[in-house]
Every structure is written in C-alpha cells, then in structure tokens.
Amino acid sequence: MGEAPRLLDAAGQEHRPFRGEARIVSLVPSLTELACALGLAGSLVGRTGFCIHPRDTVRSIPKVGGTKDVDLARVMALAPTHLLVNVDENEKPAVDALRPHVGSVVVTHPIEVEDNIGLYRLFGGIFGCEGRAGELEARLRTVLAAARAQAHAPLRVLYLIWSNPWMTVGPETYIARMLAEVGLHAVAPESPARYPQVDLDGFGAERFDAVLLSTEPYRFTEEHCRALRADPRLAGRPVCLIDGEMTSWYGSRAIDGLDYLRAFRRELDLARAAEGLPT
C-alpha cells in the first residue's frame, strides 16, 4: 500500500488524522455546513451567528460571535480541538490570538471550484469521514461535468455585493470562478482589491451585458432591481437578483450551487431573448 496523502491546509500546515473526540469550532458558514454534511454535527461545539445551515441542526450549537468579530474568550472556553477558518472571511489577528488555545487551526481558501475536492479530502482525512467525503466529491464531479458540457455563450456580468458604495467581485475570487462555469464572466475595475468599489459613472455599461444583485452580504431585493433598471447609467442592461449563498458558499453547497447556476443561466438567456438581446 502507498503512503496516505498529506493533509495540507491552505496555509501549508500539515494535519494529522484525529482519532480522539473532536471538539470543532467553525468560524465560517460554508465550513459549518460542510462539517454537518460529513456527519460531524455532533462534534461541532461552536459556530458563528452567520452559520445558519443546516438550520435545524445548527440551532443547538452555541454561537461565538460573527466571522469578523469573534468572541475570543467564548471560543477558548469551549476548549476546541479544531478551529475552522477561512482567509477571506476571518480576521488574521483573531485567528492568531486563538492559536495557542486550540489544538489545530485548519485554514481554508478555495478559489477554483475544484478546490472543494481538496477541502472534502482534507476534512475527510482529519476527521475520519473519508467515505462521506468521497460521496461529496463524486457528486461535485458529476454536476461540474454537466455544467461544462453545456455550450454557454460568454456574458459579461457586473456582480454587485454591496451598495453605498457599490462593490463587486474581482476575477480572482471563488464567486467569479463559480459564475464562469456557466459562461458568466464577472467584470470589475482594475484594482488590487479582491472586492473593489465600482463607480457607475466611470465604469460604463459598455463593459457588461447584465447586472446581478447578490442577496448577500448586502441584502439586495427585487425592489433594488427595479430601481437600478430605471438608472440611465445602465443603458437598459438586464438587472437580476441572484442567490448569494449559491454563488459564494463553498464546501458541500457548491454541488447545489452549480445546479442553481445552470438554471439561473437558462432564465437569464430567456429574459435576454425576450428583449431581443443575444444569448
């Protein structure tokens, strides 16, 4: 038999299979959901207030603040063996302050959709749930192949995540990579920021074919869509509401997310065709 693969997280830290009674604190909604999908709900002893899925399961798990404003004392009091964090979603100083009080800090940073496979394998190897991790991997590979089998005409989209100021997603983000799987190419001003601000006066409508308003982190609604459709700066470009959980949550959510995006792209093409626009 060959050697078992090394369990390296996004920070390059190697982890060992844990065979004791795990006490997991997750500071990331996607990772809380993934842990539950892997059968680890009984090992979760703490989560953020934004960790809301699966709803019935997480209700009984104590909260430790938010992703950006973690209650450090509360986390320490839970005596976790493992802390699940993400480069984009958690503040490094808070994570560093917790390191001496946690057995292992597992750092994640998926960018490509395929990075979820490594995430499944990492958690499966650490927590001894390789079987369930393999099932998730197989399901993700199936929906990813289905998405890529469709010949989508490329559409440029301005994907807005915040208002006042307007903010969008850069090309080197997980959201942009998810959108690209169905031919939606996120456009953004040139900026070193991963989530740059957008000036709609200077970033003209000739740069995009449609505007997508995400339901998170800002709670865009259909009312916002109606208001933007009347904005002359958008030159009549379609404005659509899109489920931010389906595009930005990774882990097990990527499977449903890809199915959602395939259906979303079909609806967007129909709407554009009804307006006489190319699809």
Rank of each mutant, 00 (worst) to 15 (best):
G2R: 05
L7S: 03
A10Q: 10
E14D: 12
H15Q: 08
F18K: 05
I24H: 07
P29M: 01
S30K: 01
S30T: 07
C36Q: 05
G39S: 09
G39R: 02
L40F: 01
A41Y: 01
A41M: 04
G42F: 00
S43E: 06
C51Q: 07
I52Y: 05
P54G: 08
D56G: 11
D56Q: 10
D56C: 04
T57M: 03
R59N: 07
S60D: 08
K68N: 10
V70Y: 05
D71G: 13
D71Y: 14
D71R: 15
V75W: 14
L84I: 06
N86V: 07
V87G: 00
D88R: 03
K92G: 04
K92Q: 15
P93C: 10
R99L: 09
H101K: 11
V107F: 11
V107C: 10
H109W: 11
H109V: 00
V113A: 13
E114M: 04
N116S: 12
N116H: 10
I117V: 15
L119V: 02
R121C: 07
L122V: 08
G124T: 06
L136K: 03
R139W: 03
R141I: 02
R141Y: 05
T142A: 14
A147S: 14
A147W: 13
R148Y: 04
A149N: 09
A151H: 05
A153S: 14
P154C: 09
L155D: 15
R156G: 02
V157S: 04
V157L: 02
L158Y: 11
W162R: 06
W162F: 02
W162Q: 10
S163A: 10
S163M: 08
P165G: 05
P165N: 07
P165A: 06
M167C: 07
T168M: 06
G170N: 13
G170M: 12
P171M: 05
E172I: 04
T173M: 03
A176C: 07
V182A: 07
L184A: 00
A186I: 11
V187Y: 00
E190P: 00
E190R: 04
P192N: 10
P192S: 08
R194C: 00
Q197G: 03
D201H: 06
G204W: 00
G204E: 02
F208I: 02
L213F: 07
E216H: 06
P217K: 04
P217C: 01
Y218F: 13
F220Q: 08
T221W: 00
T221R: 05
E222Y: 05
R229F: 00
R229S: 03
D231W: 08
D231V: 09
D231N: 12
R237V: 03
P238H: 06
I242H: 01
G244D: 13
M246L: 09
G251M: 03
G251F: 00
S252G: 04
D256G: 15
R262G: 09
A263I: 00
R265Q: 05
A271W: 06
R272G: 12
R272T: 14
L277A: 12
